[in-house]
């Protein structure tokens, strides 16, 4: 045992710094190409359109921290949204529709959590399977129907602009963020999630019921998918089987962009929040420039790959500088 070397947090910090810089650069680019981007009304759209993605991304950060993944959050949202449409169409009762939506999302997450925590089938395969299952269920429930004509109240609770500019769905997101960030950084749960990501056995052998935690975080993610479905329907006022198709990927990208590692153990809610905003900026910017959704997807994929490569190089450097003695 010669010298001690402290594992530095500099790379971790610089990671978030890089993200903030990247965000700033993207904003400036769009602003310069299309100055209308800086108009408050337009700019705050960025926060309006990430409402549903953001909710799910915050929940997914928990899941990915444990070394797990959920590939199918978008289809859970789809299934929940279809259930909303069906309930509203048959009962015209908003409270009931919202309740059913939340229950559906929660059940979707619960089913994932149940399989993952009880059978030890990897989350990758479980959610790959349930993703198609939920998609299939949405189609089976909806048939060829599209549901629309939702009440104005729905729009109010999920898309009102406070003071004329601040989207209420972003406020929901921020409130949730502050709570989850505090739990993540200072709470027993956050600590155990990271511990599980590194070495679940050691956490079990400390007396923690990791099965319950796993079940809990996947179920919670499901609940957030249900909430996201309501926010989404408030924005688009139509439930159809194509909703949420693209979100699986957007949500995962937001989390990974934020620096949470798919290997588990390392992550940050703050990173995820920045990741969410970057995605919002790209989405809004591209739509202002009249680019198609496909260019957006293409770019998002590239950004994800590049960010992973960058982080992996940084991680490698960090490892060399604090190598085990």
């Amino acid at each position: 045992m010669s010298t001690f070397k402290k594992k530095s947090f500099t790379s971790y910090l610089s990671h978030q710094t890089i993200l903030v810089i990247a965000l700033f650069v993207v904003v400036m680019i769009f602003g310069i190409i299309e100055p209308v981007f800086f108009k408050p009304r337009v700019f705050f759209d960025v926060f309006a359109i990430v409402g549903e993605i953001g909710l799910m991304a915050l929940g997914l950060t928990f899941v990915i921290t444990t070394g797990g993944i959920d590939l199918g959050v978008g289809y859970n949202l789809q299934m929940s949204g279809i259930v909303f449409g069906l309930t509203w169409a048959t009962t015209q009762n908003l409270a009931l529709a919202i309740a059913f939506t939340l229950v559906t999302g929660t059940l979707g997450g619960f089913f994932n959590g149940l399989i993952i925590s009880r059978t030890r089938i990897p989350s990758l395969v479980t959610t790959l399977a349930t993703m198609y299952l939920y998609r299939g269920l949405s189609m089976i429930i909806a048939g060829s129907n599209n549901y629309a004509g939702f009440p104005d109240v729905l729009q109010k609770i999920s898309t009102t602009r406070l003071f004329g500019f601040l989207p209420v769905q972003f406020i929901y997101l921020l409130v949730l963020f502050f709570i989850l960030d505090f739990i993540y950084e200072r709470g027993v749960l956050g600590r155990n999630l990271k511990g599980m990501g590194f070495n679940e056995n050691a956490v079990i052998y400390s007396g923690v019921n990791t099965k319950k935690i796993l079940l809990g975080i996947y179920t919670f993610l499901g609940l957030l998918c249900g909430m996201a479905a309501i926010v989404y329907l408030g924005r688009f006022s139509a439930a159809k089987t194509s909703m949420g198709d693209n979100m699986n990927f957007e949500v995962i990208t937001a989390v990974l962009l934020g620096g949470t590692s798919t290997m588990g153990g390392i992550g940050s809610m703050r990173g995820t929040l920045i990741g969410i905003i970057i995605i919002g900026v790209l989405k809004k910017g591209f739509s202002l420039l009249n680019f198609s959704g496909n260019i957006y997807n293409f770019t998002l994929g590239l950004i994800l790959i590049l960010s992973l490569l960058l982080f992996s190089v940084m991680e490698e450097k960090k490892k060399v500088s604090s190598r085990k003695i």
Partner: peptide, 27 residues
């Protein structure tokens, strides 16, 4: 190559590639 050289899990690399491919077709 990306999986090995950058030690990124293949699931993430190929998921992102899936997206890039689909975007590429249409664009």
């Amino acid at each position: 190559y990306l999986t090995v050289k950058f030690k990124v899990p293949s699931i993430v690399v190929t998921l992102a590639m899936n997206m890039v491919h689909v975007g590429f077709y249409a664009t």
